[in-house]
Every structure is written in structure tokens, then in C-alpha cells.
Design a protein around this nucleic acid. Structure first.
Lengths: 99, 99
DNA sequence: TTTTTAGTTCGATATTTATCGAATTAGAAT
DNA sequence: ATTCTAATTCGATAAATATCGAACTAAAAA
């Protein structure tokens, strides 16, 4: 019983973190761009497309990555971002399709 | 085209508001309690169950109501809260089942 | 080796937010 | 009319967050 409760509590921590990550217009835009492009994108690319400073984009990229909503693949100094679909499936099944 | 973009933007405003509303452990607990109870609940009732002060519960109730995640039915000075399923369906289909 | 490029981190700032107890409102019950 | 009950609002406070430009790091290119 205690185990179940604390498990639920832990899941809530993760849910809160994920919702926080999604509760920002720029991060939603980043997710949409990635979803619609159906491919990886770099920091600069997203920054240019959405007209946000590179430091801010970097900040948001990190926020998304930290809660497991995105993946990073690094090639030299360039980082490619993509959606981590399993996280969406698990915590927000059907959400991406609503974008 | 502009119409579609601004429509998308407006939807994002709503999405951000909804995610903000869900990005709080106490509000998630309130939603779970309402979902599992499968019935309306009052401010006091929820406050007692979750051990939160009544002013804080009232604050959270309002937050949930303002973004359309819950309904209120008032009887005299007592307010009964319930989930607004249509909002969940529209913006977070399948989410409630993950709780 | 110098210069360019991609991204991160830092410092500063302004805004938002969660929380509580106290005061308040409005209705119910005595 | 007084008292009790349910909920909201207020004031204060502490914590989190988004943003930018500037400084920095590390790798690629020249």
C-alpha cells in the first residue's frame, strides 16, 4: 500500500515536471516544429525558424531533454533534437496528434 | 493561412494555460481524487482528504475552473466540483486513464 | 594557427506562483 | 438576531521561471 502510494507520488513528480515543460508557448512551438518536420533539428535551425535567441533556445532544449520529451544526438559541436515518442505515449497518449 | 496560424496560436494559449493548471502536484491530486471518486466533491471535502488549507484549495479550484478542466455546481454556499471531460478529451485525450 | 561556428553558462531582471492565516461574504440553522 | 458553515479574497512571502546579451568552450574550417 505504502509502496503504491509512493509510486503514485513519484509518478506525479514526473507528471508535474512534464506539464511544466509543456506549459510554455515557445516549447510547444518547438515540439510542433519537430513533430511536423518529422526529422531532427538543430538549435540554430529552431532558433531561426521561431525567432528566439540561441541562449533561450538552448535553455528550452535542455528543459525538454531533462524531462525526457526529447532526444539529443550529437555530431561534433552540433546537437540534433528529436521527439522522444515513448514519453509522450506513456504520459500523454494522443497528445501529439492534437497539435 | 494567417487565419490558421493565429488559430494555432490561440490554441497554444489555451494549451499553455491547461498545462500550467496541470503542472502542480496538488492540482493533480485533486484531479485524481475527482476522477477516482467518480462524483462531485466540495472544497472542504477535498481539503480534508488532501490535507491542504481551505484557502489553498479554493485557489486551486479556481485555477482548474478557469481553464475549463472542471465544472462547478452550486447549492447554497456549497460548491460541488467535477471534471469537465470534454476539455480533457479535446486537449489531452487518454490522459485521465493514465492516472 | 587564426577564425568561424554551435551551443552552453552566467548575471541580471521581471514576472509568475503556491502557500498560509486572517478577514470577509453569504447563506443556513438555531 | 445570533451563530455556524462554506468558500473567497487579501496581504505577505518565498520560490521558480523566461528572457537576453555577454562571456565562454570546443570543434571545424581556413
Amino acid at each position: 500500500m505504502d509502496i503504491e502510494i509512493s509510486q503514485q507520488h513519484q509518478d506525479d513528480q514526473q507528471r508535474v515536471a512534464i506539464f511544466k515543460a509543456l506549459a510554455d508557448a515557445n516549447r510547444l512551438r518547438i515540439i510542433r516544429v519537430l513533430y511536423q518536420a518529422q526529422r531532427e533539428m538543430t538549435c540554430s535551425e529552431v532558433g531561426a525558424q521561431l525567432n528566439i535567441s540561441k541562449s533561450t533556445v538552448s535553455y528550452h532544449f535542455k528543459a525538454l531533454r531533462l524531462v525526457g520529451l526529447t532526444n539529443t544526438r550529437q555530431v561534433a559541436q552540433t546537437k540534433y533534437l528529436s521527439l522522444q515518442f515513448t514519453t509522450f505515449e506513456r504520459y500523454l497518449p494522443g497528445f501529439l496528434a492534437t497539435l
